[in-house]
Design a protein around this nucleic acid. Sequence first.
DNA 1: CGTGGCCTTGATAAAGTTCAAGAGCCGTGG
DNA 2: CCACGGCTCTTGAACTTTATCAAGGCCACG
Lengths: 227, 227
Amino acid sequence: MEIIYHIGSIPLFKGLPRPLLEDLAMIVVVQMFKKRQNIFTDGDDGNGFYVVISGRVKIFKASLEGKEQILHIFGPGEPFGEVPVFAGLKFPASAESMEESRIFFFPRDAFIGLIKKSPDIAMNMLAVLSRRLIRFTQLIENLSLKEVPGRLAAYLLYLNKLNKGSQDLELDISKGQLASLLGTIPETLSRILGRMHKTGLIESDGPRIKIVDVKGLENLAVAGGRL
Amino acid sequence: MEIIYHIGSIPLFKGLPRPLLEDLAMIVVVQMFKKRQNIFTDGDDGNGFYVVISGRVKIFKASLEGKEQILHIFGPGEPFGEVPVFAGLKFPASAESMEESRIFFFPRDAFIGLIKKSPDIAMNMLAVLSRRLIRFTQLIENLSLKEVPGRLAAYLLYLNKLNKGSQDLELDISKGQLASLLGTIPETLSRILGRMHKTGLIESDGPRIKIVDVKGLENLAVAGGRL
DNA sequence: CGTGGCCTTGATAAAGTTCAAGAGCCGTGG
DNA sequence: CCACGGCTCTTGAACTTTATCAAGGCCACG
């Protein structure tokens, strides 16, 4: 069945025996979201978690004044919204689709039953949560210890690594969203891109960015680097 | 045996059957740390995790210029340093004792073996990591969406809640360390405490702080409040 | 009684945000 | 086919917040 195929290709469920995949298929609920649709909101009660099958989802915190801080952007195969499954019941942040997305929902109680049967699922989930803690640690370091140029430099180098070292990058999110991800606002991001261009670190043309000076960016990305 | 008693009183191991506690006692390594002693450093390889038995430990990120951001302060019964056990191998932050502390160390491989035998340990650990994610989410919200007065107000209200609503608080960490926890520096913290005093939100005398205007603090603590 | 640590206070500087205006782009509809 | 409206992005100037640098006070401890 198609569902089983998708479930089997989720890293979280990698290497599970066929019968367990079938159990998972029994409890999954398939959901579709259009672009910019709310999936859950900070403070809502959660009674299960989600996995992106296609499309993209952002997890974020919003302030009253309308500023947002993006915590994650998740694509196919990535789970999200697990926290209420294991601790308390409320989502600590909000989730929204960034494009048309297909999402699998796994209800809490049935899923916990499966975990207790399979230490492998538990270990995989522990790995997922641990990686998320690493990501948050970096985000906190960026917000607290680095200035915006340093955060941007770190992000560009991250894209650079994703692209196996290619210095020709293409932003796959809008600059406004990138600002939210970096903990700043579009105006500031725009100015800093301009400054990086002027000082010869990058070349920039809309969403295409070319890294000219890797060393210079690495220097900036270290907490303490100055532009 | 004394070790077993301590292990049994760790929330992470709450409700485990006696034989499992004995297994844990077999693999534990007891360590003592004096005040301000390094336990592990950001980037080190980790081959196990820790539980505070007595004393206190801070987990933090440091920048080259010497600024630090405290991520957690852990006391008796609280585990730390679990991330390398489940994801990759490196600690994403550093740990240091804040006072003389007794710490139990559980080596990775033996512990993973126990987890696979006991879904209860796994579930408890999932809960621990999930709560940590909640804490990080709040920290990120504070750093990104609130200004320092808002962060301080939120912290005072947190102490207020810990003390079951008492408005007479006593800081149990130095103001310098509190500044690190709030993502700022001592000078700024000092000024803001002064301003809160002057505007009648609190009364402050060294480490003793009395909340005068709960509503006012709550208003500040919401992302968007102004002092 | 002096010395070092911690905290406070002041003056100054830097970084980032806000507000405002305008440019470029794209899809829609006349 | 072009004009319009709406969006994102950019740029400038003023302002706010926070950090930095420097100095002085307070207190505990030897």
